[in-house]
């Protein structure tokens, strides 16, 4: 079947403003949006730029706004969308070219919450044991693939680009609630800043945008409560 695809394009070398481009591509209903994008690039206009890597919902490269919602192009089937398929880059990041956004700021915030194990305990002979319950405590936030869909669906982030954003808070949560980690004293001040968790207004766009099904709002809420308990102590 033929599918109409509208793509918000921006070529920095020649465009002052983004512009819309329309394509009619051959696709199966069971094809993914990524397949349609590949068809545009391979058969219609080779200058179209977008990121993709694994193409199976694991690497998080092809997050973009599809019909008004942040999705991974490799996880959305064409039959599940109402035509025309409208594709835009994620909101809130500077656009480098077409659907490719500059994620430097996103990863700087990710690094600011120190997303790695912090512990003074000496490395044991084998592993650091953990009970299933202790592991379950942060299971949900281990699923993050850093695609940026949550952060760029968040009105608080659109309004203030200084805001850490849901993704960085999810990463902080993953370590804050890990029984093996002792880095809370280093992470919590970053999360407690004006640009930290308190900019969250419990809007739930992040949770609905997450292609991994993480309950992002709950994770942010748990970090908020942790900060509250720390300050009450």
């Amino acid at each position: 079947m033929l599918v109409d695809v509208r793509i918000k394009r921006f070529r920095p070398e020649q465009d002052a403003q983004p512009r819309w481009a329309a394509y009619r591509v051959e696709a199966e209903p069971t094809d993914r949006v990524l397949d349609a994008l590949n068809t545009v690039k391979w058969r219609h206009d080779g200058s179209l730029a977008f990121r993709r890597s694994c193409a199976h919902g694991i690497c998080g490269s092809d997050a973009m706004m599809i019909n008004g919602r942040n999705r991974l192009a490799c996880k959305v089937l064409i039959r599940d969308l109402r035509p025309p398929i409208v594709i835009e880059p994620m909101r809130g990041f500077p656009v480098a070219k077409d659907l490719i956004v500059d994620m430097d700021g996103f990863f700087a915030k990710y690094r600011s919450v120190k997303p790695y194990l912090i512990t003074e305990e000496p490395a044991p002979q084998a592993e650091r044991p953990q009970s299933p319950e202790q592991r379950e405590r942060f299971e949900d936030t281990t699923k993050c693939i850093l695609c940026g869909a949550c952060t760029t669906s968040c009105p608080s982030f659109w309004a203030n680009r200084e805001y850490l954003g849901p993704a960085a808070i999810v990463q902080a949560h993953r370590f804050l609630f890990d029984s093996r980690d002792h880095g809370a004293a280093e992470r919590l001040p970053v999360l407690n800043e004006r640009s930290g968790v308190w900019r969250c207004r419990t809007i739930f766009n992040c949770t609905e945008a997450c292609p991994r099904g993480i309950n992002v709002t709950k994770a942010i809420g748990e970090v908020k409560k942790l900060l509250l308990r720390q300050s009450v102590k």
Partner: peptide, 10 residues
């Protein structure tokens, strides 16, 4: 942005 009820209530 096509957010859910959370966005509209906000």
């Amino acid at each position: 942005y096509r957010g859910g009820v959370g966005q509209w209530s906000w």
